[in-house]
């Protein structure tokens, strides 16, 4: 079974992140960039499926040259090869345009299954599997906490509030994963060495047959008008418990008319 895993490089969610005032896009250049955390679960799931059922795992990334680091990490975990779509004109694309680029790149690959993360930590949109399913006309099984593939059918437990939905669809399909699905492996030393020799195919928009005017800031279907830091909260009150902490808490809630 051939699997493509969509991996996005994002600014580390634990560090200071911002937009670039020059064009109101995510500041990626100066950021501490990492693999989008949930994508590691998608990679792990792909590796487990490949190891059980055979086939190849291909990493697909749309992003600037620096995203090569994220691809290396995915390869060192054990993926077989990668496709890196990088083109100056893609800068500033919104999710809808990015999905067009990913869809075109997927169109040049052979796959039974596409795996991705349930959410990127920079955009927090959780829309990519739906956008791609719509564009590619394949089944969408999003938000998986469990995945099984058997006899050309994918079955997913879609995580919900307080339970799950059991989903079923024929391949090819796109599945997005939550961090409840598995425990991603750490790259081994051997894996890190092997990754250096694995093929990474670079593609431009021209290679995908996409006109530069169809992507980027100019083609975005929405626009950031302005942004600002959240106004700092007023100084809060901090008291030390001297046996009356519980009562003080309740007094505060009462003063706020909450109790």
């Amino acid at each position: 079974m051939n699997i493509v895993v969509l991996v996005k490089q994002v600014p580390d969610s634990g560090s200071e992140r911002s937009l670039d005032p020059a064009d109101n896009t995510v500041a990626r250049g100066a950021a501490d960039n990492v693999v989008n955390e949930i994508d590691e679960y998608a990679i792990e799931e792909a590796l487990q499926l490949r190891d059980a059922q055979g086939g190849e795992v291909t990493i697909l990334t749309v992003g600037p040259d620096s995203a090569a680091d994220a691809i290396r990490k995915a390869l060192s975990m054990g993926a077989d090869r990668a496709v890196h779509v990088s083109d100056e004109a893609i800068h500033g694309s919104d999710a809808v345009a990015t999905s067009a680029v990913l869809a075109a790149a997927l169109g040049q690959l052979e796959y039974d299954l596409v795996l991705c993360g349930a959410e990127a930590t920079d955009s927090q949109m959780s829309v990519m599997p739906a956008l791609l399913a719509e564009r590619l006309g394949i089944a969408q099984l999003s938000g998986a906490r469990k995945l099984t593939v058997e006899g050309g059918v994918a079955k997913v437990e879609r995580q919900t509030d307080g339970g799950y939905w059991a989903l079923e669809a024929p391949l090819p399909a796109i599945v997005s994963t939550w961090d409840t699905i598995n425990e991603p492996r750490y790259p081994s030393f051997k894996g890190i060495m092997a990754a250096k020799k694995k093929p990474v195919e670079r593609k431009t928009l021209a290679d995908l047959g996409i006109d530069a005017s169809a992507v980027g800031l100019g083609a975005a279907t929405s626009q950031v008008l302005d942004f600002a830091g959240r106004p700092p909260k007023g100084e809060g009150v901090k008291v030390t418990d001297e046996g009356d902490g519980g009562q003080k808490l309740v007094d505060y809630l009462a003063a706020q008319k909450i109790v």
């Binding site: 809060g236 009150v237 901090k238 008291v239 418990d241 902490g245 519980g246 309740v250």
Partner: peptide
Amino acid sequence: FELADFGIVGDLNTVVPAATEAI
């Protein structure tokens, strides 16, 4: 505490049950 409007420095095992009781 940087974003708390009201903070109590103390052991939750005593502060929280006392608050529950008072409420």
